[in-house]
Computed example of a mutant assay.
Amino acid sequence: MLGLLLLQVLSSCLWLGHGEVVTSFASCPQFFYGGTFPNDVLKPQNPAYICQRYSNSYHYATLYDRARRIPVYSAYKYKPGSAPRPHTWWFVEPQLINKNSLKDMERESVLIDQHKFTLDQIKASQAVLDDYNKRTDLDRGHLSPNGHQESRESKTATFTLTNIVPQNSSLNKGQWNIYEAKTMPKMSKGCTTTYVITGAVPGNSYISDNRVNVPSHIWSAACCLVGTQPKKAWGVIAENDKNQVENLSLGDLEARLSRLYRGRTVTLFNNACPRK
Rank of each mutant, 00 (worst) to 15 (best):
Q167D: 02
Q175S: 03
I197P: 00
A157D: 04
G147T: 03
P47D: 05
K242N: 04
P230S: 03
D241K: 10
S11L: 15
E20V: 12
M187F: 15
V212Y: 01
S27N: 11
M184S: 06
K182T: 13
T160M: 04
S24F: 00
Y78L: 04
P145K: 06
C13F: 11
G251W: 14
V110M: 11
Q244R: 11
A221G: 14
A83C: 02
G203K: 02
G3Q: 13
E180K: 02
K79E: 07
S249T: 15
T36V: 13
G3A: 02
W219A: 04
E108P: 13
N243S: 07
D137M: 15
S170W: 01
L42T: 07
E150F: 14
Y49L: 00
L111T: 12
S74H: 01
G199T: 12
S101A: 10
W90G: 00
L250A: 12
A26W: 07
S169T: 05
Y54D: 01
I207T: 02
N172D: 14
S169Q: 08
I112P: 09
Y58N: 12
D137I: 08
M184R: 02
N168A: 06
N204T: 07
I70M: 13
L6V: 10
S249W: 14
G235F: 14
C273V: 07
I97F: 04
I197G: 00
Q8T: 13
N247M: 03
V92Y: 01
S170C: 13
H18E: 12
T158S: 02
S220L: 03
K242Q: 06
R85K: 12
N240F: 15
Y64E: 01
F25G: 09
S125K: 15
L7Q: 09
G3I: 03
K77I: 10
N98K: 14
T193Q: 04
R256Q: 11
N243R: 06
Y49I: 00
P145H: 14
A127M: 07
S27M: 06
L6F: 09
P274K: 11
E106H: 12
L10K: 07
R53K: 10
E20S: 14
N98E: 13
P71S: 11
V128C: 09
A221V: 05
L225G: 15
T118S: 06
S125V: 09
G34T: 08
S205Q: 07
I237T: 01
S144E: 01
A127G: 02
P71F: 14
Y261M: 00
S109I: 04
S24N: 02
